Amino acid sequence: MWRSSHPESPRGRNDPAQYDDLAAEWWRPRGAFAALHWLAAARAALVPPAGRPGAVLVDLGCGAGLLAPHLEGKGFHHIGVDLGSSALLQAARHGVTPVRGDVLNVPLRDGCADVVSAGEILEHVDDLPTVVGEACRLLRTGGLLVIDTLAATALARFLAVTVAERIPGGPPPGIHDPALFVDRAALVRECAAHRVTLRLRGIRPSLTDLARWLAGRTERVRMRPAPTTAVLFQAVGRRR
């Protein structure tokens, strides 16, 4: 049997306090949050350069600001929203304007954002409609919503929890509650109710890059298109 490369957490699944426990891991390329670096790069690739001076990108569940290096030169004022004070301190050191707040009730005004990023956060909340409503509320007309998350399928539960929590580069044990994985149809429906039409695509790590990463030969693993959205997927849409 595989053994996890991460220490077991004494906390319950999906306990936000785990992020404070692992605060030193955020920026380690081979640390507990390695895969979040790979996903941040893939998410940023979906964000075009700012279309106007003073454009704002709101990063929901920003953690320690892993998206920031991949937005350099795109012209956005990067605002990060998170509950974790230790993560926000690190995000601020990487040029993110930190806002301590809950994604269920974001303390920012309506229509303030040209882009809203919701990366690896929807599978951690128990009220999807409210979080989607908040993300869409923040968008200007024509603003872009960018999401990546885990699908509510047996395959995702097996690969993202049973398997991934036991291998290097995978999520720390207990960081996910598979009961909160995202119903894709519900996500599309909720966004449509807020005038955002989503396009979904599956993604996965490059197997070549992952093998090189496991061998210690690279610190970068690129994400590639996957033939299905049944495990890890991205979603993109503009507010009409």
Score class of each variant (00 low, 15 high):
150 L>P: 06
145 L>W: 08
147 I>F: 11
187 L>R: 08
139 L>W: 10
173 P>Y: 02
171 P>F: 07
146 V>L: 13
169 G>K: 03
176 H>I: 05
137 R>I: 12
186 A>Y: 00
165 E>W: 04
166 R>L: 14
139 L>I: 14
157 R>F: 01
165 E>D: 08
148 D>V: 13
182 V>Y: 07
163 V>M: 04
144 L>T: 15
151 A>F: 01
170 G>P: 05
171 P>N: 11
167 I>Y: 04
176 H>F: 15
169 G>I: 03
175 I>F: 05
160 A>L: 04
177 D>V: 09
147 I>V: 15
180 L>A: 06
151 A>H: 02
163 V>E: 03
172 P>R: 08
176 H>P: 03
153 T>I: 01
151 A>L: 02
178 P>M: 09
137 R>C: 11
149 T>I: 05
150 L>Q: 06
174 G>M: 08
174 G>I: 06
153 T>V: 01
149 T>G: 04
141 T>D: 14
157 R>W: 03
165 E>K: 07
161 V>N: 09
179 A>R: 13
168 P>R: 10
171 P>L: 12
164 A>S: 13
149 T>Y: 00
179 A>V: 04
143 G>E: 12
140 R>S: 13
155 L>I: 05
140 R>T: 14
184 R>S: 05
177 D>L: 09
141 T>F: 04
142 G>E: 08
186 A>I: 03
155 L>M: 06
177 D>I: 08
177 D>F: 07
183 D>H: 10
182 V>R: 09
180 L>G: 02
154 A>H: 05
153 T>M: 00
156 A>E: 02
164 A>R: 03
147 I>S: 11
178 P>L: 09
158 F>T: 11
160 A>K: 01
145 L>G: 10
156 A>Y: 01
155 L>R: 13
173 P>V: 05
152 A>Y: 00
141 T>H: 10
